[in-house]
């Protein structure tokens, strides 16, 4: 590890590209929080007399087939996209880190069993497993959140376990055990703080892929349900209107910018916190 998390943020802000990514993330969070106040129209304000209007001063991103303002819907969809990705990655983070810490530190049969389960989950392409879970539980925001959370648990478990395995052999961890510190205290005081760097990096990158996964599920009608606006569903709705390019371009652009911002922050954090893991993590990033 080359830097501690707190100093890492200041290092990150000194990198123009990463700082730009962080700026976009902050902007998106602001949009998500203040969306209803910032959007010029209601997201479901139907006005068929204004259907399929191209971008203009009145409707910057044009209107859809029901005359709804595309800009307002894009702004309000930011909330649900970020909400799904933040909650799903939080689920994956908590479950994955706890599993990784326990099996990495204690090893034994639990390690063998849990890592085989992780191998099994890794045998499924992420989107396919998420779709299968949503197919079983039924479409909706909650099930999409759970599905995305479940499929990202193994990534966090592996990253945490790998760090915990190395840390348990460190002299200071062995010394803590020698003076009688219990396993839970060792994990909390010595192991957990030292696995935080790769976990923070993985969190940022996973947020990007969770946004993509949510958009894909909503595109397929398995995530956010109409009339609630979501970027993925807006893309699906716009697909049939090839003359109204704005219905497809702007929601897609929103997904792209959001994912790019999280990726830039993630890459910056990786370079600052742990450059050695770069290659290993890149190989699996699209799973």
């Amino acid at each position: 590890m080359s830097a501690r998390p707190f100093s890492a943020w200041s290092h990150l802000l000194r990198r123009p590209v990463s700082a730009a990514g962080l700026g976009v993330v902050v902007l998106l969070l602001t949009l998500a929080l203040l969306g209803p106040q910032l959007a010029p129209y209601g997201p479901n304000a139907v006005d068929v007399t204004r259907a399929l209007q191209p971008p203009s001063m009145e409707h910057w991103f044009g209107t859809d087939d029901l005359g709804r303002d595309v800009l307002s819907r894009v702004v309000l969809a930011a909330r649900v996209s970020l909400q799904v990705s933040l909650i799903s990655v939080s689920i994956a983070l908590v479950v994955g880190v706890v599993l990784g810490l326990v099996v990495g530190y204690f090893r034994g049969w639990a390690d063998t069993v849990i890592m085989r389960v992780v191998d099994v989950v890794f045998a499924f392409p992420i989107m396919l497993l998420a779709i299968a879970i949503v197919a079983v539980l039924g479409p909706g925001v909650t099930t999409a959140t759970v599905a995305i959370g479940v499929v990202y648990v193994p990534v966090f478990a592996r990253v945490t376990r790998a760090s915990a395995l190395a840390l348990r052999e460190e002299p200071y961890v062995r010394a803590a055990a020698a003076i009688g510190a219990g396993p839970l205290r060792i994990i909390r005081a010595h192991v957990l703080p030292n696995v935080s760097a790769p976990v923070i990096v993985q969190t940022s990158l996973s947020l990007a892929f969770a946004i993509l996964s949510e958009a894909a599920l909503s595109f397929l009608g398995l995530g956010v349900q109409p009339p609630q606006p979501s970027w993925g569903r807006m893309l699906f709705d716009g697909k049939g209107f090839t003359d109204a390019w704005w219905m497809s371009v702007f929601p897609g652009l929103a997904i792209f910018v959001t994912v790019l911002a999280f990726n830039l922050v993630g890459d910056g954090l990786r370079d600052v916190l742990d450059p050695r893991r770069r290659s290993a993590m890149e190989s699996r990033r699209d799973r």
């Binding site: 993509l212 958009a215 894909a216 893309l235 697909k239 497809s248 897609g252 997904i255 792209f256 990726n263």
Partner: peptide
């Protein structure tokens, strides 16, 4: 390229 949704690229 890493950040662009492939299905959006397809629609474009």
């Amino acid at each position: 390229g890493v950040s662009v949704p492939d299905f959006w690229l397809g629609i474009l």
